[in-house]
Design a protein around this nucleic acid. Structure first.
Lengths: 204, 204
DNA sequence: GCGGCTACCTACATGAATGTAAGTTAGAGC
DNA sequence: GCTCTAACTTACATTCATGTAGGTAGCCGC
């Protein structure tokens, strides 16, 4: 109402972003929606509305709704694998104490909703989207093995079980940890405290 | 095509169940659908088709689609709490070894898709449906405490952490355990082996 | 300035899920 | 056998997510 010079049409004020920035913004918004309101809330219209764009425009950029979801999954899986890789690097740099590793893994699974997304993927049956995580997890096994384990097949086995233990706990904590801790009267850090306390006993 | 005596209309062969049986059958079918194909597959039409009934009939019995989902959640939560209660009873009967407890809890979370359902509930934000589990979990804490722990506030704390550890692992295992174990080359029982191996160290 | 590429838009079509209205018929009780 | 309840049905209406068609307009290179 301020600068409406021409009475018929106010300027549409249509901004034009590059395709790469448009995609990034849409994926980030979709992620926020997923974390805040669950998978069902991630629709083309909802995402478009949040960034001031029509749903048709999102189809233009991603090809389809499934394309957007796939991009979202890819983005979160990439973040998770990056975080795991960083944890591996820290571990190898001779600075990685078990507690630091645990914190990094829990953060990686929790921040950005990676754990919740993984649950969604697993429930929906799109297991192939989980596949890129495989290498990251196996890298983590290698790094821990280099750092802590004695030689031999038995040592390797202990490491994979330690990683399984830590990953399952971090995942569970990110999805229903808040509810469970509340039921038990435990604090926010209870799960990672437990893992940090018992993880070393797998190594030696 | 066999017994079509009257050419105009074959007998509709409409069977009529009592409301309670109709509801039970619908909920059981919905559960099977949820486990097999994920939350998105649980629709009025799909459930109705499986039991030879129209979607309108399901609305007649449950009031709405949300009513059916709510009944489904209630049914699965009830099964889970029953299973936990049975585990508690076994534990108190002086027959409950740690390994048996672990197996029972893992079964309870896994069978009937309770773990996957809990993930769905948590992701959707319907946290109040998780509420009936609270008492069952706290009962479990009591039973374990009676059986294994020494006295004092510290003992209680160790028990709650043991339960948290076991519950998070069982939950995580039921949702992404298959994928994770595959990535790590571990067998089906790896998670419950781990829990059974380390759970006693929480108690003493 | 201006032409073209394409990021955007509006408008419409489609299909699926849910819900409503108005019947039909099965079976229980008299 | 008759009647009445309610478990069923069919035949709508509605809403929403997705997708398509075609036009509009911002920016880059000339």
């Amino acid at each position: 109402m301020s600068s409406g010079v021409k009475t018929k049409k106010t300027a549409p004020k249509r901004r034009r972003r590059g395709p790469e920035e448009a995609r990034r913004e849409a994926v980030a918004t979709a992620r926020a929606l997923l974390i805040a309101s669950g998978p069902k809330a991630v629709t083309l219209k909802a995402v478009g509305a949040k960034i001031g764009v029509t749903h048709a425009n999102l189809i233009h950029h991603f090809g389809s709704a499934a394309g957007l979801q796939s991009a979202l999954m890819g983005s979160m899986v990439r973040d998770l694998t990056d975080a795991l890789a960083a944890a591996v690097t820290n571990l190898r740099s001779d600075e990685g104490a078990p507690r630091a590793l645990v914190d990094e893994v829990f953060e990686a699974v929790d921040v950005g909703g990676a754990g919740r997304l993984a649950a969604w993927i697993a429930l929906s049956g799109d297991l192939e989207h989980l596949e890129p995580i495989r290498a990251a997890v196996q890298d983590l096994v290698e790094a821990v093995h280099e750092k802590f384990a004695e030689e031999g097949e038995d040592g390797r086995r202990r490491i994979t079980r330690a990683i399984l233990f830590m990953a399952l706990t971090a995942f569970g904590d990110s999805v229903i940890g808040a509810s469970l801790r509340d039921m038990l009267g435990e604090g926010d850090d209870a799960a990672r405290d437990i893992v940090a306390r018992w993880l070393p006993s797998f190594f030696y």
